[in-house]
Design a protein around this nucleic acid. Structure first.
Length: 469
RNA sequence: GCCGGUGUAGCUCAAUGGCUAGAGCACUUGACUGUGGAUCAAGGGGUUAUGGGUUCAAGUCCCGUCGCCGGUACCA
């Protein structure tokens, strides 16, 4: 008989318990924060009609998984959570506005896989729809700020405004249809440096591997003006705002974007958020075409190689493709997979193979019912408790299993304990924590390291005490 | 997509074109039938990613494919 070779698609991956436990933990922290801000959960299908997925234009299509249903409908896997959100807003017209929702779901893109970047990945989106108020943008940024504070990594939130970049196009005298390309180039500033940016704005350059990168062909005056913009003093947010105001004083309509970013800054200032954690960076544009106002992204300062782990901004024109009317919206998207990889590397998330805190070992096979009673008692007290169900029933095997699963406490009840109405509880962490100097195996066994006999009536209390250590 | 590197046991890696492809860790078993550590002993594990070619002889050299890593491009 042929054996089927076990393999998975390129860019896809399995999440084994250790990763999955860490992932769930991260998600639950973010959910808690969202709900503490009054964002409410939504869910939409993984599959949408093709024309829905293509609502913003055909150019998106090459990275989307499309397929035909047996009855001929053309459908596809969602590639983000914003398109389904727009559909939902258009479809359920009586949703309360502002509609503040969060959604954590899998999305699919046929991209080139990278470390921390997969073809199937999880997005955590937070959005506020139906309000132009900048306070919505501030709330989302604050929620993201709180999430990161609770998760623990050091980070920087970079803020900008698409309107400011649009003013730059006017300021530098660039054709409006070049705007998008210019934004794409200046977005590279942080990673590549000013010289590369200037080359790409102008004649182009040749990269390390010998590839030619075409330049945008801007003239020297235009490049000079962009450089002036990018090198504005911005040690503090107020300094950045003031210097930009000065630079753009003759640009018509430039106040709007500057005022918006100032408003966000004022909100954050009231909460005494340290100036270095949320900064203004005029180079960030975000890859997406659809942003219309404030934009921001987050990098982890000790794990920069994962790129931005959160990105977001205002997209006032997007939902209109479905509603036919102007529907302002702003949001953020957390790259959960990148965050997981980064937090693992920074050792800020527990990587454990099991969620159980207690294992009940089986010593007397025909008293299974008794063991189940013990397990129930501990579970009823809110402690995660596993009853050993393996076939190898020697105590040695059971403890080895518990050790491998990193379960901290074992309950051992044999004939002795049953007759005395007692239980032995054993702290399995003790051996790992300190090297115990016992040479002889016999002495080691006698020592019963980390073990304690307690009356059955006190079992739950004693376990709680042991777990607290 | 393009450029470069790389692929040997579960993991980390050895092996001048030449004898039966090795080691450490991990794993299994026993010393030890109510105790996970340490120690000792034994054991299992490989189509050298894959398909072709050169050669008396290929893990080793050449070509294709696939995977992985790095860079670059793209990213609604």
């Amino acid at each position: 008989m042929g054996i089927v070779e076990p393999k998975i698609l390129r860019g896809f991956r399995d999440l084994l318990p250790t990763d999955m436990i860490a992932l769930e933990k991260i998600i639950s922290v973010i959910k808690d924060v969202c709900e503490s801000y009054g964002f409410i959960p939504t869910s939409t299908p993984a599959i949408e009609y093709k024309n829905i997925l293509l609502a913003y234009g055909e150019e998106t299509s090459k990275e989307v998984y499309f397929f035909e249903e047996p009855d001929g409908n053309m459908v596809g896997l969602r590639y983000d959570l914003t398109v389904p959100l727009s559909r939902v807003i258009a479809q359920y017209k009586n949703l309360p506005k502002p509609f503040k929702r969060y959604q954590v779901s899998t999305v699919w893109r046929y991209d080139k896989p990278n470390p921390g970047r997969f073809r199937e990945f999880i997005q955590f989106d937070i959005d506020a729809v139906g309000t132009s108020s900048i306070s919505a943008d501030s709330e989302i940024i604050l929620a993201i700020y709180d999430c990161l504070e609770r998760l623990g990594p050091s980070f920087i939130i970079r803020l900008n405004n698409r309107k400011i970049l649009n003013s730059l196009i006017v300021f530098a005298g660039i054709e409006p249809n070049m705007a998008r390309s210019v934004f794409r180039v200046i977005d590279k500033l942080e990673k590549q440096g000013i010289e590369v940016v200037k080359q790409e704005l102008g004649p182009g350059r040749v990269d390390i591997s010998g590839d030619k990168i075409k330049g945008l062909g801007l003239n020297e005056v235009q490049i000079k003006k962009i450089e002036e913009f990018l090198s504005l003093p911005k040690n503090t947010c107020s300094e950045a705002i003031d210097s930009l105001k000065e630079l753009f004083k003759s640009v018509k309509g430039a106040e709007e974007g500057i005022d918006e970013i100032k408003e966000i800054h004022d909100h954050l200032d009231c909460l005494s958020i340290p100036d270095g954690k949320i900064i203004i960076d005029f180079s960030i544009a975000r890859g997406l075409d659809y942003y219309t106002g404030p934009v921001f992204e987050v990098v982890l300062t000790d794990a920069k190689e994962y790129g931005s782990v959160v990105g977001g901004g205002r997209f006032d024109e997007l939902i209109g493709y479905f509603t036919g009317e102007n529907t302002p919206a702003t949001g953020a998207s957390v790259g959960i997979d990148r965050l997981l990889e980064a937090l693992k590397k920074l050792k800020l998330v527990k990587t454990k193979p099991s969620t159980a805190d207690v294992i009940i070992t089986i010593m007397v096979k025909d008293k299974l019912g008794e063991y189940q009673k013990i397990a129930k008692k501990i579970r009823d007290a809110g402690i995660k408790t596993e009853l050993y169900v393996g076939e190898k029933t020697s105590i040695k095997e059971q403890l080895k299993y518990a050790d491998k699963q990193d379960i901290p406490v074992a309950v051992i009840v044999g004939e002795d304990e049953f007759t005395r109405n007692e239980a032995s509880i054993k702290d399995l962490r003790v051996i790992k924590k300190q090297k115990i100097e016992i040479g002889e195996r016999e002495a080691y066994l006698k020592e019963r390291i980390g073990q304690k006999k307690v009356p059955m009536g006190n079992l739950v209390e004693e376990i709680k005490l042991m777990l607290k250590k």
